[in-house]
Computed example of a mutant assay.
Amino acid sequence: MVDLRSDTVTRPGPAMLEAMANAEVGDDVYGEDPAVNALEAEAAALLGHEAAVFTPTGSMANQIALQLLVPPGQELLCDAKAHVVNFEMGAAAALGGISTRTWHVPNGRLDVSLVEPMINLPHPYATTTRAVAVENTHNIGGGTVQPLAELRALRELADAYGLAVHLDGARIWNAHVATGVPLHEYGRLFDTVSVCLSKGLGAPVGSLLVTDAERAARGRVLRKRLGGGMRQVGYLAEAGRFALANNIGRLAEDHARARRLAEALQPYGVCDAAQVETNVVLLRIPEIAKTAAAAAEQGVRISALGPDWGRLLTHLDVDDAGIEHAVKVLTELVRDGRA
């Protein structure tokens, strides 16, 4: 089975499993797990910050960050397709008392000129804006890489208005590999950064909130409150350490395979290869659920996200042979009109 539904479907290989089995562990709630402590220090250094907090999920890392930056009853600005307002079960409002407002942009690409008019300064009759969130790369936008110039402009704008800025960097590794921009250059533009280990990097579970030492300490309290206090979790942290050390550079292979898929499918009008910047290919196919079912019967899984659109994601568990099989199956389906 060639599973292109998401880059979350990967499973640890033998070398990662060996690293996990050999992990030195302790009680992380007490701060005594050596593998977790090492992972947090390594991730913080990569992103140019002081500290990090290991969390079981990216949603938890994001929501801890938002609660650190936005008091209850005040607001976060982000784009309308952002993960934090579409796929985290309303947690900002339900758990943090945070109001959100959104702007609309094609493919999730940041346009700072849209942000400034939305900012509410403290006022007796308005919800005060306290933070802005950006997703890089942008999932539903199609793996969009946010332009560095726009990120710098956003930082300047936020500083001018006294706002905080959060990066949902679940796939920041892909942006780094696609552009060559150092991870610390991205990270230092933000007050808080969430990064994922279980998407493109192939760890079985885990994300990190990266920030300064003071916020990290408060973040640990929020993590415990949200049920994220973990004990001998170093076995999972060691998988994350292996992923950071071995699986970032190879993301370029995923990007090349995504382009191969897009270029094969573009002649049939179901995708735009020019929009593929990383490992995500957006599809536009009427009644795409039927296409997904037909493809699955031939050993290819794709993600149907709406009545007429979906996506393909490449990852380390799909090699060139798998891509060629997917190309054969999907091009036959769209060519024959069975899509």
Rank of each mutant, 00 (worst) to 15 (best):
D3V: 04
R5I: 11
P12T: 04
G13R: 12
D28W: 12
N37H: 07
E40N: 01
H49K: 15
V53F: 07
T57D: 11
T57P: 04
L69M: 14
L69V: 03
V70I: 12
L77Q: 09
C78I: 13
H83R: 13
H83Q: 14
V85F: 08
E88M: 14
G90V: 05
A93V: 05
A93K: 09
G97K: 04
I98D: 00
R101A: 11
R101P: 04
G108F: 08
P122R: 05
T128K: 10
I140H: 13
G141C: 12
G141P: 06
T144N: 11
L148S: 02
G162M: 05
N174M: 14
T179L: 01
V181W: 06
P182G: 08
Y186M: 01
Y186C: 01
G187A: 03
G187C: 06
V195E: 00
V195S: 06
K199N: 13
V210A: 08
T211C: 11
E214V: 11
A216C: 06
R218T: 09
R220W: 10
L226A: 13
G227C: 09
G227H: 10
G228R: 03
G234N: 02
G234A: 05
N247L: 07
I248S: 06
A252Q: 11
R257L: 08
A258D: 03
A262P: 01
Q266M: 13
Q266R: 10
C271F: 05
T278E: 07
V280E: 07
E287R: 14
A289G: 13
H315N: 08
T331G: 03
V334D: 01
